[in-house]
Amino acid sequence: MNRIRRSYLVLLCTALALLSIGPVKGIASAKQGPLVSVDWLSRHMKDRNLVILDVRTFPKYEKSHIPGAVKAFGPWERMNDKFVGFMMPKTSELENMLRKYGINNKSFVVCYDAGLTSSDTAKSARAVWTLQVLGHNKVAILDGGFEAWGQAEKPVTSEPTVPWPGNFKAHVDRSKVATLDEVRKVIGSRKVFLVDNRLPEYYFGHEKKSEVKRFGRLPGSILLPVSFVTTGGQEFSPAIMRPVKELQQMALGVGLPKDRSVRIITYSDHGTQAALGYFVLHNILGYKNVSVYDGSIIEAAANPKVRMERYSWSYGSYGGR
């Protein structure tokens, strides 16, 4: 009897303790994310283990940033040794960088960007993807970025944050990175879905970036422009992620299956937009087997052995009856 009463008491105390620190000064939860709201961040800014990464450019950071945020421009991508394509830097280099940002293996990392357009969000997504490749899954993007923070009139500062160095150790997960060799093997495969995250005019081959050698796309890819996934720029909206329901509708609407176990490889011009494609498909919609083709079109188009196609929608199946 006594024992039961005592265990009740313990339970009660624990519950009370949890309640008192929980929402206000709780330890940032690993289950939070993949998106956090301005409201959530403003309530959890002081949380132990929370690291806020500002992935905007240095001048923007120096002018004003979220209090406590670390200047984290990167480099998240580096020109590769053949000078075609921007690739994820070496693991050791990234480990050092992330430690300087104050990241430990226990840290919950929230990334934010300018938050005006989907291209901004893609910069955060690239950081999130990099961390996940390094085996760190306690990451989130601040929905709407710095623009949403500013529009909500939350406090900002120009005082740089000097973080206490972290001891982050990477456990690399290569399954989240696709190489040119792998991509070449799956072109034409009906089992693997190649997803082009650029704008329709690039996919169609009407336009291309000047640094990209050839027009068009990888044969058979599906078109899911990540500029469509946020409402950035519409009626002065920050780049807020569309509701899950709409993203789901889009994924099916562009030709992805409902089956969450299919193999998906995303790509764009440089691999930044592709990271946002990855983020939406993997972190938000729950497709389990998604990787980013890091070299992306800039690498593929420079290699004459890679076939590309142009002037059509995929298999001519878009539109019509």
Binding site: L199, P200, E201, F204, F228, W313, Y318, G319, G320
Partner: peptide
Amino acid sequence: SSVQYFGHEKRADVGCYGHIPYAFTLPGDF
């Protein structure tokens, strides 16, 4: 533009997002 066809954006004075059923997208820009 394919952006309007897809219904991500629309012209301000147009009352609905998206396209007419069974339409092909062939942007005049192309």
